[in-house]
C-alpha cells in the first residue's frame, strides 16, 4: 500500500485522539495554573495531584442528562456543537505539526511515511483561517436555535466579534506572507530554518502582536471572551447546553487554542526547525506550550473588555495598524 496514505491516516487518528484528549488536559492545566497564580490549590483530590480530574469531568459530561429546551429548534440545536468540534479539527488538518518522518513496521515490513501536515494544500494558512472563520457558525446557530435571550445576545456577539477580528487576522498575516512569498505553512517553516535569528517575529513584530491579539479574539479567550461572559450574558450561546453537547463546544474551543498556538509558532517563531541542539519536535512543543500558557496567564492577569471597546480596538486601532504594516512591508519588499 501507499506508505504516504497509511501515514496520513495514522496521523489523522493520532491527532484527532490527542487533541480531543488535550482539550480535557487543557482544562486541568488551566485550572492548576489559574489556581497557582491566585495562590490556591486547584484540583487535588481525584488521583495524584488531581490528574484524574479529567476522567472525572469526562464521566460527568458523558453521563449528564442531555436537555433540549422544548421551544428550541431541535435539529439545529443538536447540530451546532458538532460544527464547533468539526471545524476546529478540520482546521488542524492543514497545520504542519512536526517533521515528516518515516519508519518501517517490523512484522509486515511496510514502509510508513508520516507527513508533517495531514492535508498538504499549498494555501494552508488561508485554509486554516477560513475554517476557523466557518467555526463561528457553531455559537451563532447554537445561540439562535435555543430560544433564549442570553443565547441570542451571545450569538450576536459571536457574529460581531469573529467577523471583525477575522479582518485583523487576515491583514496581520498578510505581511509575513509577502515576506515568505507563499501561502503554504511548510514554506513558512522552511523560510525560518536558519535558527532563531531568521524567525519572522524579528522582522514583523507588529504583525506578530496583531495576530496574537486577534488570535485571542478568535478563540474567545479572556480579554475578549464576550461570547459567554458570565457576568453579562449568563453563559451566552452555551446557556441551554449541558452534558456532551456542551463538552463538544469545549473541545472545539481548546482545539482552536491549540491551532492558534501552532500557527503562532509556525508563522512567526520558526516552526519545527531545530534550534541548535534542541530537536525540532521538542522546540515546537515548547513553543506551543508557551503560547498555550500565555493564554492562561493573560486570563489570570487581565480583565475583560467591554463590547464597544472591543469594536473600537478592532476597527480604529488594530485594523489601521495592520494596513499600515502591510503598506510598509510592501514598500520594503518592492524596493529592497
Amino acid at each position: 500500500m501507499d506508505p504516504l496514505l497509511i501515514g496520513t491516516v495514522l496521523k489523522s487518528i493520532i491527532v484527532l485522539s490527542i487533541v480531543s484528549a488535550l482539550a480535557g488536559f487543557g482544562t486541568y492545566i488551566e485550572r492548576k495554573v489559574l489556581a497557582f497564580m491566585q495562590r490556591r490549590l486547584g484540583p487535588t483530590h481525584v488521583g495524584p495531584f488531581g490528574l484524574l480530574q479529567i476522567a472525572a469531568d469526562g464521566i460527568k459530561l458523558f453521563t449528564k442528562e442531555d436537555i433540549i429546551p422544548s421551544n428550541a429548534n431541535k435539529l439545529i440545536f443538536s447540530v451546532a456543537p458538532a460544527i464547533a468540534a468539526a471545524t476546529a479539527f478540520i482546521a488542524i488538518s492543514a497545520v504542519p505539526l512536526f517533521h515528516t518522518f518515516e519508519f518501517t513496521v517490523p512484522v509486515i515490513n511496510q514502509l510508513v511515511i508520516v507527513p508533517s501536515v495531514i492535508a498538504d494544500i499549498n494555501i494552508g494558512i488561508l485554509f486554516v483561517l477560513g475554517m476557523m472563520a466557518a467555526g463561528l457558525y457553531a455559537p451563532l446557530l447554537a445561540g439562535m436555535a435555543q430560544a433564549n435571550k442570553w443565547g441570542i445576545i451571545g450569538s450576536s456577539r459571536t457574529a460581531v466579534q469573529f467577523l471583525s477580528y477575522e479582518v485583523v487576522t487576515g491583514l496581520s498575516v498578510m505581511a509575513p506572507i509577502m515576506l515568505v512569498g507563499s501561502l503554504s505553512l511548510i514554506d513558512f517553516n522552511n523560510a525560518q530554518a536558519d535558527g532563531v535569528g531568521s524567525w519572522i517575529v524579528w522582522q514583523q513584530p507588529v504583525a506578530f502582536v496583531l495576530f496574537l491579539i486577534a488570535g485571542f479574539a478568535e478563540t474567545n479567550r479572556t480579554p475578549f471572551d464576550l461570547l459567554e461572559h458570565e457576568a453579562e450574558v449568563v453563559s451566552g450561546y452555551a446557556t441551554e447546553y449541558s452534558g456532551l453537547r456542551w463538552g463538544m463546544f469545549f473541545i472545539g474551543e481548546y482545539a482552536n487554542m491549540i491551532t492558534i498556538s501552532f500557527l503562532l509558532a509556525i508563522i512567526f517563531c520558526g516552526g519545527y526547525s531545530d534550534i541548535g541542539f534542541v530537536a525540532g519536535w521538542l522546540a515546537m512543543l515548547l513553543k506551543v506550550a508557551f503560547f498555550f500558557f500565555l493564554m492562561l496567564w493573560i486570563r489570570a492577569a487581565w480583565p475583560h473588555v467591554r463590547p464597544d471597546q472591543l469594536m473600537w480596538l478592532c476597527w480604529k486601532v488594530l485594523m489601521p495598524i495592520a494596513v499600515i504594516n502591510i503598506v510598509i512591508t510592501g514598500l520594503v519588499v518592492m524596493l529592497g
Binding site: 421551544n71 428550541a72 429548534n73 494555501i123 488561508l126 485554509f127 483561517l129 477560513g130 475554517m131 472563520a133 466557518a134 463561528l136 457558525y137 451563532l140 446557530l141 439562535m144 436555535a145 430560544a147 441570542i152 450569538s155 450576536s156 457574529a159 460581531v160 469573529f162 467577523l163 477575522e166 487576515g170 501561502l183
Partner: peptide, 28 residues
C-alpha cells in the same frame, strides 16, 4: 485558492452578516 476564498468570503463573512440580520426575527 478560490475554494478557500469561497470559504472565507461567502461562509465566513457574507453568510454571517446574513445571519446577523436574521437575528432580528423570531427564528423558532
Amino acid at each position: 485558492f478560490l475554494g478557500v476564498v469561497q470559504l472565507i468570503v461567502y461562509v465566513g463573512a457574507v453568510m454571517a452578516l446574513y445571519a446577523f440580520g436574521m437575528m432580528f426575527f423570531d427564528v423558532t
